[in-house]
Simulated assay, not measured.
Amino acid sequence: MVKANQNRRQPSNNRSKPKFDRRNAKPRDIQPQVPVETGDEAEQSEFVFGRHAVAETLKTGSVQTINKLFVQADLSSDAVHQIVQQAQQKKIVVSQVPKSKLDLLSDGGNHQGVMVTIAPYAYASIDDLFAVAAEKDEAPFFLILDNLEDPHNLGSIMRTADAVGVHGIIIPKHRAVGLTSTVAKTSTGAIEHVKVARVTNLAQTINILKERGMWIFGTAMDGQDFRQWDASGATALVIGNEGKGISPGVAKLMDATLTIPMVGHVQSLNASVAAGVLMYQAFSSRQVSS
């Protein structure tokens, strides 16, 4: 059984690759804006659009991060009215604009007649992610996204991560998608609940996570069947790039690898789909453990 054991082993400078069954492993030590307008200044802001995403942003965001709500001038549905009321209760400026303006700002996206402008999303630190787990009194469970490029994949992954209780996501600063309005829209509000840390060097960060008590799992064609994975301990799951998978420098740092058996003609899954399958296996094993 692939296992992130609840028993933690002490850090070591001479780490040998752990055996597949970790039940007898020794423990690792776990450590616990500016106003914007629709003109040139709008380029300095992020946009969240779509009724569900906007409502969630208004519910969880603060007046310091949310600047203005744009509403399509000719809309008067109950859903839009409730969104306007949310904004007014927080004393957020509401501006009626023509549909063409929302089409332009959303780059033709499905804005459903509402949009908010917000300050660029703030990233968390690795310590922040550990703090989330500590606050819930749970063994840390992180996702590490190795140079993911598609904002829709990141948004979908964030949505599932929120559903299964992931404590945080780690992404690289360079050659990878960051937190954008497209990510926010695709996440349907999960971006407000899942902390994301952005780091300069993923390999270095993984080594730090190991020193702080985490087991690192990745995907590989010759890995062990994911259905036998027990992620009940301090666990980080690495999801690779959409086309290239996990980079060689990161792959060699895996404690163990997992594979998703497939019997169809297409022998690969979209990154967000694969991440979702693995996250739910981790969620299941952690629920049984707790």
Rank of each mutant, 00 (worst) to 15 (best):
Gly155Pro: 01
Pro172Lys: 00
Gln228Glu: 15
Ser268Cys: 08
Gly50Cys: 01
Ile169Val: 09
Arg175Met: 11
Gln267Asn: 14
Ser95Met: 12
Glu192Asp: 10
Ser76Leu: 07
Ala87Asn: 03
Asp150Pro: 01
Val116Asp: 06
Gln89Asp: 11
Thr160Met: 05
Ser12Met: 11
Ile144Tyr: 06
Tyr280Val: 02
Asn14Gly: 12
Ala190Arg: 00
Ile157His: 01
Ser76Ala: 10
Ala184Cys: 06
Thr257Gly: 05
Met158Val: 01
Ser77Gly: 09
Ala176Met: 01
Pro32Ile: 13
Glu149Arg: 13
Leu154Gly: 05
Gly165Gln: 01
Gln6Lys: 15
Asn5Arg: 07
Val277Asp: 11
Phe20Cys: 10
Asn153Glu: 02
Gly61Trp: 03
Gly109Tyr: 06
Ile206Tyr: 01
Arg8Thr: 13
Lys244Gly: 12
Ala119Arg: 10
Val164Asn: 01
Val97Pro: 12
Ala119Pro: 14
Asn153Val: 00
Val132Trp: 00
Gln86Lys: 07
Ile92Val: 08
Asp222Ile: 03
Trp229Gly: 01
Ala275Ser: 06
Val34Met: 14
Gln82Asp: 13
Gln287Gly: 08
Ile169Thr: 01
Arg9Thr: 14
Asn201Gln: 09
Lys185Val: 09
Asp40Val: 15
Trp229Glu: 01
Thr57Val: 13
Ala139Asp: 09
Met1Gln: 15
Met221Trp: 13
Lys3Ile: 15
Met1Arg: 14
Ser100Asn: 14
Gln33Asp: 15
Gly155Asp: 02
Ala184Ser: 06
Val63Gln: 11
Asn110Cys: 08
Val93Leu: 13
Val93Pro: 13
Gln44Ala: 14
Tyr123Arg: 08
Lys173Tyr: 08
Val132Lys: 04
Ala124Ile: 05
Gly249Trp: 04
Asn153His: 02
His265Val: 14
Leu148Tyr: 02
Met214Thr: 03
Asn153Cys: 03
Phe141Ser: 01
Asn67Pro: 11
Ser272Met: 06
Ser247Asp: 08
Lys99Pro: 11
Ile260His: 06
Gly276Leu: 05
Lys3Cys: 15
His167Ile: 02
Ser100Lys: 14
Ala203Glu: 11
Ala197Cys: 05
Lys195Glu: 02
Gln33Glu: 15
Lys3Asn: 14
Leu75Asn: 13
Ser76Phe: 09
Pro248Cys: 05
Val36Asn: 09
Thr219Cys: 08
Arg175Gly: 10
Leu179Arg: 00
Lys185Trp: 10
Gly264Asn: 07
Ile216Cys: 04
Ser284Pro: 10
Ser272Trp: 02
Arg212Gly: 07
Val48Tyr: 00
Pro261Gln: 01
Ala220Trp: 05
Ala220Tyr: 07
Ala274Gln: 04
Val238Gly: 03
Asn14Arg: 11
Pro151Ala: 03
Ser232Ala: 12
Ile246Asn: 06
Gln72Leu: 07
Ser62Ala: 07
Val94Tyr: 02
Pro98Ala: 06
Thr188Trp: 09
Leu129Cys: 00
Ile169His: 00
Arg51Thr: 15
Asp107Glu: 14
Phe283Val: 08
Pro11Ser: 01
Lys68Phe: 11
Asp29Arg: 15
Pro151Gln: 02
Met254Phe: 02
Pro32Lys: 12
Glu135Ile: 10
Leu69Asn: 06
Leu69Ala: 06
Leu75Tyr: 11
Asn241Val: 07
Val48Ile: 08
Pro140His: 02
